[in-house]
Design a protein around this nucleic acid. Structure first.
Lengths: 348, 348
DNA sequence: CTGAAAGCGCTAACAT
DNA sequence: ATGTTAGCGCTTTCAG
């Protein structure tokens, strides 16, 4: 095979010019049937494969979409988003390059640099770490989409309407007779962080609103902490620790609302250690629906439209390329309450 | 910014030739200190970023490593491998493109084609789906590494020594007094599949060997099935179903050895449904150590060196590039028995 | 120490 | 309907 076949080799072999070969390869322009067949045969014989480097260089655009994923471990949420991104990208003829930035702004910056170097068609931040990096990419004219926890008003954004599903979960608990309902999760967004913190704000907000009629909030039953540790399982620690404290205290909650499945897994462990039965003795609800199907009992949770998030992100990138406009659109998808087996009426 | 800065722009700005600019950028060749400073300043001012397309085209090699991942959902094992690949690649100055092939040979073939088009420096199959695809890549002269379940003797391979750790797990169970130990897992390798099936062969082999002294194997206590469903949670179904049957039968096992954590999660669910306490009433051991920390109780499992697998794969790619030889080396890493809380002495 | 120029493989005018 | 050719942005001789 002496080196890899190029267009020229194919052209020589088929006895035509290189232009003709590109024409049949990209099928544009007129090519006689006979010629086309001859070219195709030559391609076959030489084992020719287009050199994407050359093609993209020439075309002045690449068919690669860069995907910056915040973290893949321990939370599989982003893995699902990545699936959606890949699905849609492939369907639209794009290739995805994924970089896991591990919640680190510096790694994220590096990732952006790399992608910009590849002259990617667009950049998806599956939850940006730093708004600066988003701004940087936007400033260089690259189509950008921020998924789930936008850090900046720049570029397109896709978020999830957490509130209704969370409210549904709370109503469910209330209808079951629970009044002492605890909450573990990330701290709701502060002023500074409004955009990125909306997820926690919405989740906790739903809890707060639902508890309103019950009486003044018992802040002893609320525990905030890190949701995405820097790739550690710290989140699990948080759920576990909170539950241990509550369960060992005099007047324990009868239900716990968690802002992630990982947190809920920790609560389940604490309960298990104390020989408490879930849901008979304690009801638990998770969020994200990532671990839910693996836990015992099957965890009632709130499903994030992870895959659709990914698909939509690619759609938005493609739209931006087509329209050429950087007009920052904002898409909103819905979460879904999934009733399983981890809730039951209040033990009397 | 009127378009993206190129070398030429930088050169003009710095009042030097393009060659000088590359020299400072890649720092090879002599450049006067003063000139270097001027160039660097120009780079800064123009916001220049190298065009990787052009650079790689020219250099006739790309600094991208293609990673074909068999599946990311539901088993997070490959996600961890991917982490290792990324870590090591970055450390060595490579970029990783990842494609999730979902256990589909056709998707895998497509992935290989794409990567070949990008003239990747090497290809990592984190468990190849089809030996044909591996062979194809090797035939085209690309450095190849197969991770964990090689399908072909071509290229480099990295596998895991499952046997010792699995034997340790079995000894542990035996020492605890268990005699009726069940096994769920993938079917051990058949003649045709020897290479890829070694994992299951080793795992089951350890079980078989350990049970030898106990007496003739009760095949009622052995259940084979699909371990990696085509991205469904079928694996969980298998563990759950097997456990249900065993637990509802007259003489249930006192311990279950599972060839994956997902399978173990299913067993835990079946036990939980029947109000059986793990480990008091039933001991359970998983494999892979993926879900172990999230389950209740904390699951005793066997940890695969996932990250190291990924790192080693990149190392082997780099070696191949350096040596230019396609001599198929074979690396073997060890698994590790992790004792947690899901085993206890046989209930009398 | 630095600049000019060739050319990587491909696409897209522009000819014919 | 097909061939010729000029670059895309970069690296790398080869001169100076």
């Amino acid at each position: 095979m002496q080196g890899i076949a190029t267009l020229k080799h194919v052209a020589e072999r088929a006895g035509v010019g290189v232009a003709t070969v590109t024409r049949v390869l990209n099928n544009n322009g007129y090519v006689a049937e006979a010629t086309r067949a001859r070219v195709l045969a030559a391609v076959e014989e030489t084992g020719y494969r287009v050199n994407s480097l050359a093609r993209n260089l020439k075309r002045q655009r690449s068919d690669v979409i860069g995907h910056l994923v915040r973290s893949t471990i321990p939370n599989p949420f982003f893995v699902k988003v990545a699936r959606g991104v890949e699905d849609e990208a492939r369907a639209r003829g794009f290739t995805v390059m994924t970089v896991n930035v591990r919640g680190d702004r510096e790694e994220e910056r590096l990732g952006v640099e790399t992608f910009l170097g590849w002259r990617v068609a667009g950049l998806i931040f599956s939850t940006p770490v730093s708004s600066r990096n988003v701004a940087f990419a936007v400033a260089r004219g690259t189509p950008v989409v921020q998924v789930e926890r936008p850090r900046s008003a720049l570029g397109h954004r896709i978020t999830v309407r957490n509130r209704p599903a969370a409210a549904e979960a709370m109503e469910h608990l209330l209808a079951l007779g629970h009044r002492r309902i605890a909450y573990v999760g990330g701290a709701p967004g502060t002023q500074r962080n409004e955009t990125a913190g909306y997820v926690e704000t919405e989740r906790f907000g739903a809890y707060q609103a639902a508890m309103e009629p019950v009486g003044p909030l018992d802040m002893g039953l609320v525990r905030f902490g890190l949701v995405y540790g820097p790739d550690q399982t710290t989140a699990q620690g948080l759920g576990y620790q909170a539950a241990c404290e509550w369960l060992d205290a005099p007047d324990p909650p009868t239900a716990v609302m968690c802002s992630s499945d990982i947190l809920a897994a920790g609560v389940l462990q604490a309960a298990h250690e104390r020989s408490l039965r879930v849901p008979a003795d304690l009801s638990v609800i998770g969020f994200d629906d990532t671990l839910a199907e693996y836990l015992s009992p099957l965890l009632t949770s709130i499903r994030m439209p992870a895959r659709r998030l990914g698909r939509a992100a690619v759609g938005l990138i493609v739209d931006q390329i087509a329209s050429g406009s950087g007009e920052g659109r904002h898409l909103e998808l819905s979460a879904e309450f999934i009733l399983r087996r981890s809730t039951a009426p209040t033990p009397r």
